[in-house]
């Protein structure tokens, strides 16, 4: 299958199964909040609490180097939480839905897409406390915020691509989830979340910028915290990297598609 066909099928499947995606995203939300009295507030409280803890610990370390560390941190935590959540929930999707896949010929990545969309809802819910923190700390809300949705494109592609690769791997290797934990932890510290690019030694920057997540997080922080536009070249580089990673994920999925039935 050509790259165009892989991408075409992928996006057509999303359109074709839009009813199911809607239904399953709402299901996941309902399930998550059914038995908690705070309900949807959790989606807003979670990142808020995380931010508070990290701010308390790191703002003194960063003393003088970063102004309003809570917004600095929160703006980068948004895309990271989405990425982390999507990748982690993609891993098990094929095994969890084995019974369905055993009798219904549907595109198998639809379950991964569903968990990615679910995490998007969480991301938008977390936007509310970010705005509150900005208002509360008197941080200016820059007009560049309107570019934010554009940054979600490479974010979606990259998270999806990595999630699909790991979902395929998990069908064959049961220790994929453990390896992913290590991978995600390493990535967390190699992305500009707790710090900024200029706080890293230059020799390291050369390498870490190759990770599209680095540029995506940095770009989102520029839009939300600094109020500056990300460099177009960097944006395109990260977009290309993300498209490539999704392509790899789709290729691996397509390649392994016929073999899943032997393992699940």
């Amino acid at each position: 299958m050509t790259a165009a066909a892989l991408y075409g099928n992928f996006f057509y499947s999303i359109y074709d199964y839009r009813e199911y995606l809607k239904e399953s995203v709402f299901r996941d939300l309902r399930k998550k909040y059914k038995r908690s009295s705070l309900g949807y507030l959790w989606s807003m409280l979670n990142p808020l609490l995380m931010m508070i803890i990290l701010t308390v610990v790191f703002s003194s370390l960063m003393k003088g180097r970063v102004e309003n560390y809570s917004v600095f941190l929160f703006s980068a935590l948004l895309p990271w939480t989405y990425f982390n959540g999507t990748v982690k929930s993609c891993i098990g999707t094929i095994r969890q839905n084995a019974k369905i896949l055993d009798q219904l010929p549907i595109p198998k990545y639809i379950f991964s897409v569903s968990s990615s969309f679910y995490n998007f809802v969480d991301l938008f819910l977390a936007f509310v406390p970010l705005l509150l923190v900005m208002l509360f700390t008197g941080h200016p809300i820059h007009s560049t915020i309107i570019i934010f949705p554009l940054m979600l494109i490479p974010l979606f592609f990259f998270s999806m691509g990595l999630g699909l690769l790991l979902a395929v791997s998990n069908v064959f290797f049961e220790d994929t989830a453990h390896l992913t934990d290590v991978l995600l932890r390493a990535m967390y510290f190699l992305c500009p979340i707790l710090y900024n690019r200029d706080m890293l030694p230059p020799w390291l920057v050369k390498y870490v910028v190759l990770n599209p997540m680095f540029g995506i997080i940095e770009g989102i922080r520029q839009l939300l915290y600094f109020g500056t536009l990300p460099n177009l070249e960097t944006f395109l580089f990260n977009l290309a990297g993300s498209v490539l990673v999704l392509g790899l994920g789709l290729y691996a999925f397509n390649k392994a598609d016929d073999k899943f039935v032997y393992f699940i």
């Binding site: 199964y17 009813e19 199911y20 239904e23 399953s24 369905i100 219904l104």
Partner: peptide, 9 residues
Amino acid sequence: YLSGALHKK
């Protein structure tokens, strides 16, 4: 609903 949506109803 969920099962129907899975069958594209």
